[in-house]
Design a binder for these strands. Structure first.
Lengths: 195, 195
DNA sequence: GGCTGACAGTTAGCCTCCTAACAATAATTG
DNA sequence: CAATTATTGTTAGGAGGCTAACTGTCAGCC
Protein backbone atom coordinates (compact mmCIF):
# COMPACT_ATOMS: atom_id res chain seq x y z
CA UNK A 1 0.00 0.00 0.00
CA UNK A 2 1.09 3.57 -0.51
CA UNK A 3 2.67 5.64 2.18
CA UNK A 4 0.71 7.89 4.46
CA UNK A 5 0.42 11.18 2.69
CA UNK A 6 -1.83 14.12 3.18
CA UNK A 7 -4.65 13.77 0.76
CA UNK A 8 -5.07 17.38 -0.06
CA UNK A 9 -1.88 19.28 -0.48
CA UNK A 10 -1.68 22.68 1.17
CA UNK A 11 -2.47 25.44 -1.23
CA UNK A 12 0.28 27.60 -2.50
CA UNK A 13 -1.08 30.63 -0.69
CA UNK A 14 -0.87 28.74 2.57
CA UNK A 15 2.74 27.94 1.91
CA UNK A 16 3.41 31.60 1.27
CA UNK A 17 1.67 32.42 4.49
CA UNK A 18 3.61 29.82 6.45
CA UNK A 19 6.84 31.10 4.94
CA UNK A 20 6.34 34.33 6.84
CA UNK A 21 6.77 32.44 10.07
CA UNK A 22 9.44 30.07 8.83
CA UNK A 23 12.12 31.78 6.78
CA UNK A 24 13.55 28.36 5.91
CA UNK A 25 10.40 27.45 4.04
CA UNK A 26 10.78 27.93 0.30
CA UNK A 27 7.22 27.89 -1.02
CA UNK A 28 7.95 26.81 -4.56
CA UNK A 29 10.37 24.15 -3.33
CA UNK A 30 7.80 22.82 -0.89
CA UNK A 31 5.13 22.81 -3.54
CA UNK A 32 7.27 20.86 -5.96
CA UNK A 33 8.35 18.51 -3.20
CA UNK A 34 4.81 17.74 -2.09
CA UNK A 35 3.67 17.18 -5.64
CA UNK A 36 6.58 14.83 -6.19
CA UNK A 37 5.73 12.76 -3.13
CA UNK A 38 2.05 12.76 -3.94
CA UNK A 39 2.45 11.81 -7.58
CA UNK A 40 5.07 9.19 -6.86
CA UNK A 41 2.76 7.68 -4.30
CA UNK A 42 -0.13 7.75 -6.75
CA UNK A 43 1.95 6.04 -9.42
CA UNK A 44 3.15 3.50 -6.90
CA UNK A 45 -0.41 2.85 -5.83
CA UNK A 46 -1.53 2.12 -9.37
CA UNK A 47 1.01 -0.63 -9.93
CA UNK A 48 0.52 -1.83 -6.38
CA UNK A 49 -3.20 -2.28 -6.89
CA UNK A 50 -2.48 -3.99 -10.18
CA UNK A 51 -0.08 -6.33 -8.42
CA UNK A 52 -2.46 -6.85 -5.52
CA UNK A 53 -5.16 -8.01 -7.92
CA UNK A 54 -2.75 -10.76 -8.93
CA UNK A 55 -1.98 -11.63 -5.33
CA UNK A 56 1.57 -10.37 -5.28
CA UNK A 57 3.28 -7.49 -3.53
CA UNK A 58 5.57 -4.86 -4.95
CA UNK A 59 8.52 -6.34 -3.12
CA UNK A 60 7.94 -9.81 -4.48
CA UNK A 61 7.43 -8.43 -7.96
CA UNK A 62 10.78 -6.68 -7.79
CA UNK A 63 12.51 -9.94 -6.97
CA UNK A 64 10.80 -11.70 -9.85
CA UNK A 65 11.88 -8.95 -12.24
CA UNK A 66 15.46 -9.21 -11.08
CA UNK A 67 15.46 -12.96 -11.57
CA UNK A 68 13.64 -12.67 -14.85
CA UNK A 69 16.59 -10.88 -16.38
CA UNK A 70 18.60 -14.04 -15.96
CA UNK A 71 16.29 -16.04 -18.19
CA UNK A 72 16.26 -13.45 -20.96
CA UNK A 73 19.57 -14.21 -22.66
CA UNK A 74 18.30 -12.92 -25.96
CA UNK A 75 18.66 -9.31 -24.94
CA UNK A 76 22.17 -9.97 -23.72
CA UNK A 77 23.15 -11.54 -27.01
CA UNK A 78 21.77 -8.66 -28.98
CA UNK A 79 23.48 -6.15 -26.77
CA UNK A 80 26.76 -7.94 -27.27
CA UNK A 81 27.41 -7.58 -23.58
CA UNK A 82 26.12 -8.59 -20.18
CA UNK A 83 24.89 -5.14 -19.36
CA UNK A 84 21.23 -6.04 -19.34
CA UNK A 85 21.04 -9.74 -18.62
CA UNK A 86 22.76 -11.99 -16.11
CA UNK A 87 21.11 -10.45 -13.12
CA UNK A 88 21.69 -11.29 -9.49
CA UNK A 89 21.23 -14.83 -8.25
CA UNK A 90 22.08 -15.10 -4.57
CA UNK A 91 19.91 -13.59 -1.83
CA UNK A 92 22.65 -11.12 -0.96
CA UNK A 93 22.94 -9.94 -4.57
CA UNK A 94 19.18 -9.70 -4.85
CA UNK A 95 18.96 -7.72 -1.62
CA UNK A 96 21.61 -5.33 -2.85
CA UNK A 97 19.97 -4.88 -6.24
CA UNK A 98 16.55 -4.38 -4.70
CA UNK A 99 17.78 -2.04 -2.02
CA UNK A 100 16.50 -4.05 0.94
CA UNK A 101 18.30 -5.87 3.71
CA UNK A 102 19.25 -9.51 3.42
CA UNK A 103 16.77 -10.30 6.16
CA UNK A 104 13.94 -8.79 4.16
CA UNK A 105 15.07 -10.70 1.09
CA UNK A 106 14.91 -13.91 3.07
CA UNK A 107 11.28 -13.20 3.83
CA UNK A 108 10.47 -12.31 0.24
CA UNK A 109 12.11 -15.46 -1.10
CA UNK A 110 10.32 -17.47 1.57
CA UNK A 111 6.91 -16.42 0.35
CA UNK A 112 7.89 -16.62 -3.31
CA UNK A 113 9.18 -20.13 -2.81
CA UNK A 114 6.09 -21.08 -0.82
CA UNK A 115 3.96 -19.91 -3.75
CA UNK A 116 6.16 -21.81 -6.20
CA UNK A 117 7.48 -18.81 -8.14
CA UNK A 118 11.15 -19.31 -7.30
CA UNK A 119 13.36 -22.10 -6.06
CA UNK A 120 16.37 -22.10 -3.78
CA UNK A 121 19.34 -24.29 -4.69
CA UNK A 122 22.53 -24.63 -2.69
CA UNK A 123 25.67 -23.37 -4.39
CA UNK A 124 27.90 -26.38 -5.11
CA UNK A 125 31.11 -24.40 -4.62
CA UNK A 126 30.48 -22.11 -1.64
CA UNK A 127 28.30 -23.88 0.85
CA UNK A 128 27.32 -20.60 2.51
CA UNK A 129 25.56 -19.41 -0.61
CA UNK A 130 22.22 -20.21 -2.15
CA UNK A 131 21.21 -19.73 -5.75
CA UNK A 132 17.70 -18.49 -6.42
CA UNK A 133 16.06 -19.08 -9.78
CA UNK A 134 12.68 -18.52 -11.37
CA UNK A 135 10.49 -21.59 -11.73
CA UNK A 136 8.38 -22.30 -14.80
CA UNK A 137 5.40 -21.06 -12.79
CA UNK A 138 7.22 -17.85 -11.99
CA UNK A 139 8.08 -17.28 -15.61
CA UNK A 140 4.53 -18.01 -16.65
CA UNK A 141 3.22 -15.53 -14.10
CA UNK A 142 5.43 -12.77 -15.44
CA UNK A 143 4.51 -13.58 -19.03
CA UNK A 144 0.85 -13.22 -18.11
CA UNK A 145 1.20 -10.25 -15.81
CA UNK A 146 3.69 -7.99 -17.55
CA UNK A 147 1.58 -6.98 -20.56
CA UNK A 148 -1.12 -5.55 -18.31
CA UNK A 149 1.50 -3.95 -16.10
CA UNK A 150 3.21 -2.24 -19.01
CA UNK A 151 -0.12 -1.19 -20.39
CA UNK A 152 -1.09 0.47 -17.10
CA UNK A 153 2.18 2.37 -17.06
CA UNK A 154 1.79 3.45 -20.66
CA UNK A 155 -1.75 4.64 -19.95
CA UNK A 156 -0.69 6.62 -16.92
CA UNK A 157 2.05 8.34 -18.89
CA UNK A 158 -0.01 8.75 -22.03
CA UNK A 159 -0.92 12.21 -20.82
CA UNK A 160 2.64 13.38 -21.44
CA UNK A 161 4.18 13.93 -24.85
CA UNK A 162 7.57 12.51 -25.70
CA UNK A 163 9.26 15.80 -25.04
CA UNK A 164 7.41 16.25 -21.77
CA UNK A 165 8.59 12.82 -20.67
CA UNK A 166 12.14 13.74 -21.49
CA UNK A 167 11.78 16.96 -19.52
CA UNK A 168 10.29 15.12 -16.57
CA UNK A 169 13.09 12.56 -16.55
CA UNK A 170 15.66 15.32 -16.77
CA UNK A 171 14.18 17.24 -13.84
CA UNK A 172 13.77 14.12 -11.73
CA UNK A 173 17.34 13.09 -12.48
CA UNK A 174 18.52 16.44 -11.21
CA UNK A 175 16.66 15.89 -7.97
CA UNK A 176 18.08 12.41 -7.63
CA UNK A 177 21.55 13.75 -8.14
CA UNK A 178 20.97 16.41 -5.53
CA UNK A 179 19.64 13.80 -3.13
CA UNK A 180 22.78 11.77 -3.64
CA UNK A 181 24.88 14.82 -2.92
CA UNK A 182 22.96 15.68 0.22
CA UNK A 183 22.76 12.14 1.53
CA UNK A 184 26.01 10.46 0.53
CA UNK A 185 25.73 6.74 1.07
CA UNK A 186 28.42 4.97 3.11
CA UNK A 187 29.88 3.07 0.17
CA UNK A 188 29.47 2.03 -3.43
CA UNK A 189 28.29 5.42 -4.57
CA UNK A 190 30.44 5.57 -7.65
CA UNK A 191 29.45 2.04 -8.68
CA UNK A 192 25.88 2.72 -9.74
CA UNK A 193 25.93 6.11 -11.35
CA UNK A 194 22.58 6.11 -13.06
CA UNK A 195 22.08 9.59 -14.30
CA UNK B 1 11.33 3.59 5.45
CA UNK B 2 11.08 3.83 1.70
CA UNK B 3 9.37 1.29 -0.44
CA UNK B 4 11.22 -1.56 -2.04
CA UNK B 5 12.50 -0.27 -5.33
CA UNK B 6 15.12 -1.50 -7.69
CA UNK B 7 18.26 0.41 -6.95
CA UNK B 8 19.54 0.68 -10.45
CA UNK B 9 16.91 1.44 -13.00
CA UNK B 10 17.05 -0.54 -16.23
CA UNK B 11 18.82 1.34 -18.96
CA UNK B 12 16.88 2.82 -21.74
CA UNK B 13 18.39 0.42 -24.27
CA UNK B 14 17.18 -2.49 -22.19
CA UNK B 15 13.67 -1.08 -22.22
CA UNK B 16 13.86 -0.76 -25.99
CA UNK B 17 15.03 -4.34 -26.17
CA UNK B 18 12.27 -5.57 -23.89
CA UNK B 19 9.72 -3.66 -25.91
CA UNK B 20 10.42 -5.99 -28.81
CA UNK B 21 8.96 -8.83 -26.80
CA UNK B 22 6.21 -6.83 -25.15
CA UNK B 23 4.38 -4.54 -27.54
CA UNK B 24 2.53 -3.03 -24.57
CA UNK B 25 5.77 -1.67 -23.16
CA UNK B 26 6.26 1.98 -24.02
CA UNK B 27 9.96 2.62 -23.33
CA UNK B 28 9.77 6.34 -22.71
CA UNK B 29 6.68 5.91 -20.53
CA UNK B 30 8.37 3.20 -18.50
CA UNK B 31 11.51 5.28 -18.14
CA UNK B 32 9.57 8.29 -16.88
CA UNK B 33 7.50 6.07 -14.59
CA UNK B 34 10.52 4.41 -13.02
CA UNK B 35 12.26 7.72 -12.52
CA UNK B 36 9.13 9.09 -10.89
CA UNK B 37 8.92 6.20 -8.45
CA UNK B 38 12.59 6.30 -7.73
CA UNK B 39 12.80 10.03 -7.17
CA UNK B 40 9.65 10.12 -5.13
CA UNK B 41 11.03 7.39 -2.95
CA UNK B 42 14.32 9.19 -2.58
CA UNK B 43 12.58 12.40 -1.58
CA UNK B 44 10.41 10.49 0.85
CA UNK B 45 13.48 8.82 2.29
CA UNK B 46 15.18 12.15 2.98
CA UNK B 47 12.35 13.51 5.07
CA UNK B 48 11.84 10.10 6.64
CA UNK B 49 15.43 9.94 7.81
CA UNK B 50 15.12 13.48 9.05
CA UNK B 51 12.02 12.51 11.00
CA UNK B 52 13.61 9.31 12.21
CA UNK B 53 16.47 11.27 13.70
CA UNK B 54 13.87 13.03 15.81
CA UNK B 55 12.22 9.79 16.80
CA UNK B 56 9.02 10.26 14.85
CA UNK B 57 7.54 8.52 11.84
CA UNK B 58 6.13 10.04 8.68
CA UNK B 59 2.65 8.98 9.68
CA UNK B 60 2.85 10.62 13.06
CA UNK B 61 4.34 13.76 11.54
CA UNK B 62 1.41 13.99 9.15
CA UNK B 63 -1.01 13.94 12.06
CA UNK B 64 0.92 16.63 13.89
CA UNK B 65 0.90 18.83 10.80
CA UNK B 66 -2.85 18.42 10.42
CA UNK B 67 -3.39 19.36 14.05
CA UNK B 68 -0.91 22.18 13.86
CA UNK B 69 -3.11 23.99 11.39
CA UNK B 70 -5.68 24.36 14.11
CA UNK B 71 -3.33 26.32 16.33
CA UNK B 72 -2.24 28.71 13.63
CA UNK B 73 -5.15 31.12 13.51
CA UNK B 74 -2.97 33.93 12.23
CA UNK B 75 -2.87 32.55 8.74
CA UNK B 76 -6.61 32.12 8.75
CA UNK B 77 -7.14 35.70 9.80
CA UNK B 78 -4.86 37.01 7.11
CA UNK B 79 -6.54 34.88 4.50
CA UNK B 80 -9.88 36.23 5.53
CA UNK B 81 -11.23 32.72 5.32
CA UNK B 82 -10.92 29.30 6.88
CA UNK B 83 -9.28 27.81 3.85
CA UNK B 84 -5.94 27.19 5.51
CA UNK B 85 -6.65 26.88 9.17
CA UNK B 86 -9.25 25.06 11.20
CA UNK B 87 -8.02 21.64 10.28
CA UNK B 88 -9.50 18.33 11.30
CA UNK B 89 -9.97 17.47 14.94
CA UNK B 90 -11.62 14.10 15.34
CA UNK B 91 -9.87 10.83 14.55
CA UNK B 92 -12.23 10.20 11.66
CA UNK B 93 -11.50 13.62 10.13
CA UNK B 94 -7.80 13.13 10.65
CA UNK B 95 -7.92 9.70 9.03
CA UNK B 96 -9.76 11.11 6.07
CA UNK B 97 -7.39 14.04 5.67
CA UNK B 98 -4.35 11.83 6.00
CA UNK B 99 -5.67 9.17 3.69
CA UNK B 100 -5.46 6.29 6.15
CA UNK B 101 -8.10 4.17 7.81
CA UNK B 102 -9.61 5.08 11.14
CA UNK B 103 -7.98 2.03 12.64
CA UNK B 104 -4.56 3.26 11.57
CA UNK B 105 -5.33 6.69 12.94
CA UNK B 106 -6.19 5.15 16.30
CA UNK B 107 -2.73 3.61 16.41
CA UNK B 108 -1.02 6.83 15.40
CA UNK B 109 -2.90 8.84 18.01
CA UNK B 110 -2.12 6.15 20.57
CA UNK B 111 1.61 6.55 20.14
CA UNK B 112 1.41 10.34 19.84
CA UNK B 113 -0.57 10.53 23.05
CA UNK B 114 1.80 8.11 24.77
CA UNK B 115 4.69 10.39 23.82
CA UNK B 116 2.76 13.43 25.01
CA UNK B 117 2.45 15.22 21.66
CA UNK B 118 -1.33 15.16 21.48
CA UNK B 119 -4.24 14.73 23.86
CA UNK B 120 -7.59 13.05 23.43
CA UNK B 121 -10.63 14.77 24.89
CA UNK B 122 -14.16 13.48 24.74
CA UNK B 123 -16.58 15.58 22.72
CA UNK B 124 -19.14 17.08 25.12
CA UNK B 125 -21.92 17.00 22.54
CA UNK B 126 -21.52 13.73 20.68
CA UNK B 127 -20.31 11.09 23.06
CA UNK B 128 -19.10 8.87 20.23
CA UNK B 129 -16.53 11.39 19.18
CA UNK B 130 -13.18 12.36 20.53
CA UNK B 131 -11.36 15.62 19.96
CA UNK B 132 -7.63 15.46 19.41
CA UNK B 133 -5.47 18.47 20.03
CA UNK B 134 -1.81 19.30 20.05
CA UNK B 135 -0.19 19.63 23.48
CA UNK B 136 2.37 22.28 24.31
CA UNK B 137 5.02 19.62 23.89
CA UNK B 138 3.70 18.77 20.45
CA UNK B 139 3.73 22.40 19.42
CA UNK B 140 7.22 22.82 20.75
CA UNK B 141 8.39 19.79 18.84
CA UNK B 142 7.04 21.19 15.58
CA UNK B 143 8.54 24.59 16.25
CA UNK B 144 11.93 22.96 16.71
CA UNK B 145 11.65 20.43 13.96
CA UNK B 146 10.04 22.31 11.10
CA UNK B 147 12.88 24.74 10.28
CA UNK B 148 15.27 21.85 9.60
CA UNK B 149 12.57 20.00 7.72
CA UNK B 150 11.87 22.96 5.45
CA UNK B 151 15.54 23.55 5.00
CA UNK B 152 16.09 19.97 3.85
CA UNK B 153 13.29 20.31 1.32
CA UNK B 154 14.64 23.62 0.08
CA UNK B 155 18.09 22.11 -0.31
CA UNK B 156 16.82 19.13 -2.20
CA UNK B 157 14.94 21.36 -4.61
CA UNK B 158 17.65 23.98 -4.84
CA UNK B 159 18.92 22.22 -7.92
CA UNK B 160 15.85 23.37 -9.86
CA UNK B 161 15.19 26.91 -10.99
CA UNK B 162 11.87 28.56 -10.37
CA UNK B 163 10.71 27.86 -13.90
CA UNK B 164 11.88 24.26 -13.67
CA UNK B 165 9.87 23.83 -10.49
CA UNK B 166 6.81 25.19 -12.20
CA UNK B 167 7.34 22.81 -15.09
CA UNK B 168 7.80 19.88 -12.75
CA UNK B 169 4.63 20.68 -10.85
CA UNK B 170 2.74 21.06 -14.10
CA UNK B 171 3.89 17.68 -15.42
CA UNK B 172 3.25 15.95 -12.13
CA UNK B 173 -0.21 17.47 -11.94
CA UNK B 174 -0.96 16.05 -15.38
CA UNK B 175 0.03 12.60 -14.18
CA UNK B 176 -2.07 12.97 -11.05
CA UNK B 177 -5.03 13.95 -13.15
CA UNK B 178 -4.52 10.98 -15.41
CA UNK B 179 -4.25 8.70 -12.39
CA UNK B 180 -7.54 10.03 -11.11
CA UNK B 181 -9.12 9.34 -14.48
CA UNK B 182 -7.77 5.81 -14.64
CA UNK B 183 -8.53 4.95 -11.03
CA UNK B 184 -11.72 6.76 -10.13
CA UNK B 185 -12.27 6.61 -6.42
CA UNK B 186 -15.57 5.33 -5.05
CA UNK B 187 -16.75 8.68 -3.73
CA UNK B 188 -15.84 12.23 -2.89
CA UNK B 189 -13.85 12.77 -6.02
CA UNK B 190 -15.22 16.17 -6.81
CA UNK B 191 -14.72 17.37 -3.24
CA UNK B 192 -10.96 17.63 -3.26
CA UNK B 193 -10.04 18.74 -6.73
CA UNK B 194 -6.48 19.79 -6.20
CA UNK B 195 -5.11 20.50 -9.64
C1' DG C 1 46.59 -27.68 11.91
C1' DG C 2 43.94 -24.42 15.05
C1' DC C 3 42.27 -19.45 15.95
C1' DT C 4 40.35 -15.22 14.51
C1' DG C 5 37.80 -12.36 11.44
C1' DA C 6 34.60 -11.77 7.46
C1' DC C 7 30.68 -13.15 5.06
C1' DA C 8 25.93 -15.69 3.63
C1' DG C 9 21.61 -16.72 5.15
C1' DT C 10 18.32 -17.08 8.77
C1' DT C 11 15.74 -16.02 12.95
C1' DA C 12 13.45 -13.03 16.44
C1' DG C 13 11.17 -9.01 17.67
C1' DC C 14 9.55 -4.23 16.52
C1' DC C 15 6.85 -0.63 13.79
C1' DT C 16 3.42 0.82 10.53
C1' DC C 17 0.12 0.00 7.61
C1' DC C 18 -4.06 -2.79 6.29
C1' DT C 19 -8.96 -5.36 6.64
C1' DA C 20 -12.63 -7.21 9.45
C1' DA C 21 -15.35 -7.34 13.31
C1' DC C 22 -16.87 -5.18 17.56
C1' DA C 23 -19.34 -2.00 21.35
C1' DA C 24 -21.27 2.43 22.18
C1' DT C 25 -23.82 6.24 20.56
C1' DA C 26 -26.63 9.05 17.30
C1' DA C 27 -30.05 9.54 13.69
C1' DT C 28 -34.02 7.95 11.30
C1' DT C 29 -38.28 5.89 10.85
C1' DG C 30 -42.55 3.26 12.00
C1' DC D 1 -41.51 5.79 22.05
C1' DA D 2 -39.21 1.43 19.97
C1' DA D 3 -36.54 -0.54 16.30
C1' DT D 4 -33.54 -0.20 12.65
C1' DT D 5 -29.68 1.92 10.47
C1' DA D 6 -25.45 4.72 10.34
C1' DT D 7 -21.39 6.43 12.46
C1' DT D 8 -17.34 6.74 15.90
C1' DG D 9 -13.62 4.82 17.84
C1' DT D 10 -11.44 0.64 19.10
C1' DT D 11 -9.58 -4.06 19.04
C1' DA D 12 -7.64 -8.33 16.77
C1' DG D 13 -4.91 -10.39 13.41
C1' DG D 14 -2.15 -10.20 9.06
C1' DA D 15 1.56 -8.53 5.69
C1' DG D 16 5.74 -6.25 4.68
C1' DG D 17 9.47 -3.52 5.95
C1' DC D 18 13.43 -2.77 9.49
C1' DT D 19 17.52 -3.78 13.05
C1' DA D 20 20.09 -6.89 15.88
C1' DA D 21 21.70 -11.18 17.02
C1' DC D 22 22.65 -15.86 15.66
C1' DT D 23 24.64 -20.19 12.96
C1' DG D 24 27.41 -22.10 9.52
C1' DT D 25 31.19 -21.54 6.17
C1' DC D 26 35.32 -19.48 4.00
C1' DA D 27 39.86 -17.03 4.27
C1' DG D 28 44.02 -15.64 6.46
C1' DC D 29 47.65 -15.85 10.01
C1' DC D 30 50.40 -17.85 13.82
Amino acid sequence: MPHLLLKQLPRYECLLEAAKEFPELDPSAAEAFLHLLRTGDEAFGITDRNLGDHGISHGRFGVLMLLWRSVQPRAAKLMGAESCALGPRTPAELADAAGVTRATMTGLIDTLERDGFVKREPDPVDRRMMSVRLTAKGEKFLAQFLPGHFKAIAELMSTLSESERKTLVRLLAKIQLQAAVLQPKPDGVAASSIG
